[in-house]
Each structure stands twice: as structure tokens, then as C-alpha cells.
Design a protein around this nucleic acid. Sequence first.
DNA 1: CTGAAAGCGCTTACAG
DNA 2: CTGAAAGCGCTTACAG
Lengths: 337, 337
Amino acid sequence: MITLKELSAKCGVSIATISNVINGKNNVSKKTRDLVMKAVEETGYEPNILASSLRSTSSKTIGIIIEDVTAFSSPAVIEGLMHACEQAGYRSSLQNLRLYSKGIFDSGEGFKEAVAQAVRQVLSIKVDGIVFLAAHSRPVDVFPENLRVPAVVAYAKSINPKVPSVLFNDEKAAYEMAKYMIQKGYKKIGMIAGKADSVHTIRRKNGLKKALAEAGLEYVESNVFDGLWNRESGYKLSEELFKNDIDSVFCGNDNIAAGVCDYLREKGKVPGKDIGVAGFDGQEFAAYTYPPLTTVKLPLFQIGNKAGELLVAQILGESFENLELTIDCSFVEGKTI
Amino acid sequence: MITLKELSAKCGVSIATISNVINGKNNVSKKTRDLVMKAVEETGYEPNILASSLRSTSSKTIGIIIEDVTAFSSPAVIEGLMHACEQAGYRSSLQNLRLYSKGIFDSGEGFKEAVAQAVRQVLSIKVDGIVFLAAHSRPVDVFPENLRVPAVVAYAKSINPKVPSVLFNDEKAAYEMAKYMIQKGYKKIGMIAGKADSVHTIRRKNGLKKALAEAGLEYVESNVFDGLWNRESGYKLSEELFKNDIDSVFCGNDNIAAGVCDYLREKGKVPGKDIGVAGFDGQEFAAYTYPPLTTVKLPLFQIGNKAGELLVAQILGESFENLELTIDCSFVEGKTI
DNA sequence: CTGAAAGCGCTTACAG
DNA sequence: CTGAAAGCGCTTACAG
């Protein structure tokens, strides 16, 4: 690996000047600049990022702390994040907490410790900013009060008011889905939600309520079930829900919707013909169920991209207070509504 | 951020000694060690990785170059990779090529350039080794001849004999799936494969051939179709394939299998009852099709894990020549066979 | 416009 | 067992 010193010897120019050329300073004569650039080309010189970061104030690197790469939402958000970083000339360094496999999900001591360590480690490579990518939405408190670089929380809500959050617009998407169901003629809409205390659940219920109210329909508490976010929960709660008089189910996510479809088929009913089923998330598998789910697709790439942009804006000097950006979901027309 | 110098002042011990304590050298008296450790605890001192990597020969970091995080296989492999790294005390730095979104997939100039740049960048942070994670299997030539750190290729075959590869055992999995089909009573097995020139296709065909031969059944060329790796291809080629007299389809992957199921249902046939359908890959959605696919699950986590172990072994001094490790897939019992 | 020198925060012989 | 000193490859005032 060639160094500035060697380049200096080759060109007969001081290393300070070479450094100036490489960093695009305009205090170098064109002649010298050309000479140096040619040598850089020829040798394939790559600056030692370690050394330059150690010395200068900026490493042109942003740290990305991910709760878990294997969460369905992570890859696309990372993609968006990296896209934004690249645009702005920042490289990125990923730190994967692997919270699922370590069983220290959510909060609690193990969580706090793991996050704090990741933050310290990321800081120790002098990143210019940090984005925390959550594996599921909730209020999170992941950065120390005295963090000395800008930060953003993606896919969850930051408790710290100085740290902006980027989320998707849960309530609006739910509202629009419910409106669509009503438009399609469904009048007795039940709901199988995820965990009762989740912000997702609360917001999606609100969306449903709003749409029902607007249509002059009643939101019937006894037709709304809280549960878990998985397929089994969708199946099991169907047994309860379908004791009631309903014509469709608004599901907390696609997994639950898949469970509801399982149940319906078992009873000889066709989702989308006999009973309407709406999913949420727009996961890949939603296109593979039979019939394919009508659902709502999370703007994952955009969340990452926006989070990256917000971080870069802060690095460049802007600051935000209590900023919670929400991005709209998109509608996925399947055959279950 | 506290430094060795400050720690030194606080303890009244030289920074050299403090460095020795922190790095676990045994040339320090217990008394001094305890004193320093206490101060480290109290201050929450974290070594500056940049500085220590710059100075020492090892950064205790391995570089992971990923073709695309959004490939279905990437997250789980990364997980395994990071697990192995962590076990061995290495941190990892990810570099996402984002080849899909850049449209420079596979090989060609754009590809070579992007890879070469990623390798240089990763080297410029002085990683102790590099693993290249492919988004699909094929022979790849991604490292320069004179690479000065160990490397491994995961999920593809390295052309460079010094660089080991970790793959899954395509042929064996195909053989076992075919054997299972035969055992279940299918005698006229057709195949809808992916791209004809893919190593996956070739190996999976070989597995099928072997199982058929063992059972005294004929491998009928005209019942085998090459195509693309997607659902549409599975659907379209079904129209051709089912003109022939067959009782089951061995599919090149789960997407193709889903397409075959689409076709069958459209014709009023039930996959797994009227016609057998076997998938390959064990993607998440395979459990959500109706009926769920009988398929073969790729050992993604293990591929990553093994690749990480092989890299660490090399960093520790071992070396390999022409090593191509293949890991067995696992069987997923669905309802389509 | 150019270069000599200090210094980022560490590690590593080396002398004592 | 301990510490003074050199140096990893850069950047940044500063003097000329």
C-alpha cells in the first residue's frame, strides 16, 4: 500500500502539498496538481482512512447501528441509508447488534448495555454521525445525553428530542386501507391486531376508527382482538373473532392475515370472496399467499434514505428539535379484499 | 472521549504501561494492573480503534464486502459471519456494493471496478481479512493476485485457488429431494430449472439424474426446461411442460415452484394432490404458499459462520489451497409432494 | 504557492 | 516491572 511519503518522493513535492491536492484544496498550482494527480493515477494510491480520520476532525464515515439484519425491514432500510450516505460522500460502517439471536430484544438491562457498547465502539472510529435502525417500532432511548455527534433513529421513535426519528405513517395507511374496505362494500369489519401496547397497534386502530366514523359505521370493541404479531396468533384469534357477525378482518400485519386465511380455508371459506382479509407491511410473502394479500407496503427504502439525509443535514450544521418524520405507505392490491 | 494520556495522568503510570494492561500483556504487576483497571472502569475508557489499528499490525477487524444486502440470502449469511467474527474477537466492517440497484450485477467492467474499489477501501482501514459475500452462486474472481490479507468467498466459488469458498451442497440436496419424490410414488418427474448456464442448474440437474438412475427411472430431456429464476418463468414453462405426460415437477427454486402452483390452481389442479411440486431454497414465502411448498432450505447462517471461521483460521496462520467447502441443506416438509 | 514541523492516540522495541 | 521515545500515515496551522 503506497503512502503519501512515497508519492512525495516520486513527485519531488512535499507531502503537505500532496495532501492538499488530494483533498481538493485550491492552494496548489495547476502544474503541481497535475503532476500529483498523474502519480496518484499511476500508483493507484488510496489514502489511509485510519490515519486521515485520526488526524482530522471528520472521518467522512457514518455509523449505522442495526438491531438485527435479519428483521424483515432491515435490508431495505439499510439500502436506503447507504444510498443517501453515498450521495453525500460518506461511507458507512455497520454494527449489527444481532438482538434476536442474543435474546436481548426490546429494552431491559442487556439491551441498554449492548446498545451503549455499540455506540461507544462506533464513536471510537470517529464517525461523523450515527443512525440507529430499530427492528420494530417503539419509543427508544439509545443515545447518551452528551453524544458529541448528530444522530437519527430510523424505524422507531426517539425519546431524545434532539434526535429526529423517521417512521412510516401507520395511522394514515390504516385509515386508507379501512376506507378501501368500506368502499368495497364491507360493513362489519373486525380486527386482529398485534400486541396491545405497541404503537403500531394503537395507530392502526386509530386509522380504522377514523375510517369507520367517517363512513358512519360503528367501531365495535368486541370485534377487535389484540394478540401477537405472528401467523399462529392470527389463526387462533380467528376462532374467537368468527363467532361474531363480521364480514371482513383488518389484520395488524401480513403474518396475522396469513393465519386468518389459514383458518378460513380450513373452514372452506375463500378469503376475498366469502370474507375480506387485509394485511399490513407488504412483506414479500404477501404476494405468495393464495389468494395474494391485499396489504399496505412499508416505505422501507425511503425511511432509510430520509434518515440518511437527516443525518447528513445535521452533520452539515442543521439541527432539529422534536422532529418525527412519517413517510406514507403504498397500497398493494391483492385479492383478499 | 478519554485518552490513554489522561488515564496516565489520573493513575500516575506511564501510557506504555497502561497500554500493556489494556492489551492484557503479562508484564505488569498485579498492583499496577488493578489500579489501571479500576480507572478504566471508572472513566469508561474505550481505546481509539483508529489509533491502535494505525499503529499496530492488526486492526482486529474483518471486512465484509456484500454484493447486495437485499438479496434473500444475504442477511442470514451476514448473521453467521458476524457470529463467527465475534466469537473470535474480531469486529466487522460491512461494505454494501448495492449491485442490484446500480444495475451492475454479475461480471463485466462495472462490476470489476466496483469490487476493486470496495477491496481497496476495505484495505485502507487495515482489515485483517476480507470475506466476499455473493448474491448468487457462480465462479467469481474478485481479489487481486497480490492481496496482502487472507480472504474467503461465501455463497460463490472463488476462482483464485488461495481463496477458499463456502457453498451449499446443491447436488446432494437435489438428489435427496428427488429421492423423496420417488419414494412418495412419483415416477414421471419433470423439471423447470433456472438459467441453463448456472452452476445451480447444472448441479441440481445432476442430483435429479442420479436419483432417477438409482431408481431405474429415465431422465427424459424433453421433460426438462431451462428458464429464469422467477415466478413468471415457472408459470409460463408450465404451459409447455404439462403438455407432456408427467406427474410432478422438480423446480429450480421456490419462485419457480410458486409459478407452477399458480398454473396448476388455474387449471383446477391441487399441488401435492394432483401434481407434485418441489421447491428449492427454503425461502420464507415457501411456508405461505397454499399449500406450503415442500422444499430444501439453504444453510445460510452456517455458510456465513463457516466462512468466518475459515477466515479467522487463515489470519491465525493456516492456509488452504483449492478449498471448496459445501454445507448440506435441510429438508422442509410442506404439502406439495 | 510550497514545505518543515507538530500532533492525532495509540503500540512497540528498548533501556533501565 | 516501568517508562521515554519513535513512529503508524495522515492534516493543519504556520512561516517563507
